[in-house]
Design a protein around this nucleic acid. Structure first.
Lengths: 246, 246
DNA sequence: CGAGACCTTGAGTTAAGTCAAAGTTGGTGG
DNA sequence: CCACCAACTTTGACTTAACTCAAGGTCTCG
């Protein structure tokens, strides 16, 4: 069931009705797989479908004066191009990171569904607004120094992955290279390397080829100046207590 | 008519129906004025209304490790807290810049209006998505060096103000101090000062106490690596030709 | 077992930051 | 209407966090 993660997340955040859940799980979709670093959508594209990330990871990228800037990371259950429903032209690229499976859902079908269900309308709008809140936090993140910046990214990924059940014992896997992390934090690859070493040396994390382990989460969040609130994981109507384990 | 700018902008972008325009202009509102740097909304607030910026300017701010980071500037016709319809808790502050007039519109009235009109639903969602596109561009902007960064901000403000008729002969006024500009670009005040001087020296702009004059717009956009597309001013259904004068 | 992609290290450079002091400017009240 | 004050802008001298370049190490997969 490709929508499981999304439904689960919407459920937890705002509480879907039985009918909405059924509507969503019945919507027609096409499954498509990508291998590492393939382009899913490109600047200027005007897609006629939205993409639901089922398995794997997606990066939103933009080339700025010759350098790659990563604008966002997406995890299973995210819909990275919902905005094309209202803004037809892509203003950046979406690429896979590691082997990735997505479900395509046509704009027409989504529009029909949203016209019909007010609950899903709110839920989908809300998703794009959380996306925006994350961008805001990334802007804020760039005021921080390299250590705090990296630490913040590590905390954010932990929180988002935990929300869809991909964190175990404070450990998670991501297919990102240090170069990807550098492009996301606006740092050089070399400096990211030294910064990760520093975080390891101070005993806050362990990192090895795509696996992060948070050893002292509280301290790490302190260093990162990380506040969970901007992810708005629990402030919808449902207000489920979050389990957020280390 | 406090909604004139907003209606005009939505009109130009996606083309409102006669009925939608009427609905929007009849919605109940309360006018409120602020003087310079007052707080309009604060982190943690759960407002029961949205704010439409009628006159003046608003900044979205967040304090990050002691420093103020400006996350966004808003110009007349913008609705800086539309997102509170779906995400109840503010995750940052909104403050006025210079004397400012806003119209408050209750969430309940907006919800009723959006339930009724699909056109306005799309239009409002779209507004929040453009907001997000601007955040993305600000993230990208931080890869650029100080000169390009400042230049980009100047171009963006020009484009957005032009869109609501506040640019004349390539000139516009904003009530921002160099400190505000610094907080927005993630630079120190001193460095912003030197950067503005550099831009003046090379004949691209004139700046004096809140007045920008773009002397060589093309060259400035070149320096800034500025692409108009991310503002999505003309890619809705209406597709009006934009007049974008220098 | 070799190649390519990653990661790591060292040495030297630089864009931007900090601190501190001196100019400006515009608004206010005497 | 002028003088003064506070808020802004500008300048100079020095520091530093992060960048660049270049070379060497290590992992992984065919």
């Amino acid at each position: 069931m490709p929508h499981r993660k999304l439904i689960h997340r919407l459920e937890a955040a705002i509480g879907l009705s039985e009918e909405d859940r059924a509507l969503l799980s019945r919507i027609p979709r096409t499954i498509r797989s990508f291998s590492d670093r393939e382009t899913i959508a490109r600047v200027g594209d005007r897609p006629s479908h939205c993409t639901l990330l089922v398995e794997g990871f997606v990066m939103r990228k933009k080339v700025v004066t010759g350098k790659n800037q990563v604008l966002a990371f997406y995890v299973p259950g995210d819909a990275p191009d919902l905005h094309t429903l209202q803004l037809p032209a892509m203003d950046h690229d979406l690429t896979s990171a590691g082997p990735t499976t997505v479900a395509y859902i046509s704009h027409a079908d989504i529009r029909a569904m949203l016209d019909y269900s007010r609950g899903l309308r709110n839920a989908f709008w809300r998703e794009t607004l959380i996306d925006a809140a994350i961008y805001r936090e990334w802007i804020a993140n760039l005021t921080r120094n390299a250590i705090a910046r990296m630490a913040h990214l590590i905390c954010e990924l932990a929180a988002r992955l935990d929300n869809v059940g991909f964190v175990e014992d404070g450990m998670y896997r991501v297919p990102f290279t240090q170069e990807n992390l550098a492009d996301a934090c606006g740092l050089s690859t070399v400096h990211v390397n030294r910064t990760l070493q520093e975080l390891r040396r101070s005993g806050l994390i362990r990192w090895q080829r795509g696996t992060f382990r948070l050893l002292k989460r509280e301290e790490l969040e302190e260093v990162a100046d990380f506040q969970l609130d901007y992810l708005h994981q629990g402030d919808g109507q449902a207000m489920k207590a979050k389990t957020y384990r280390t």
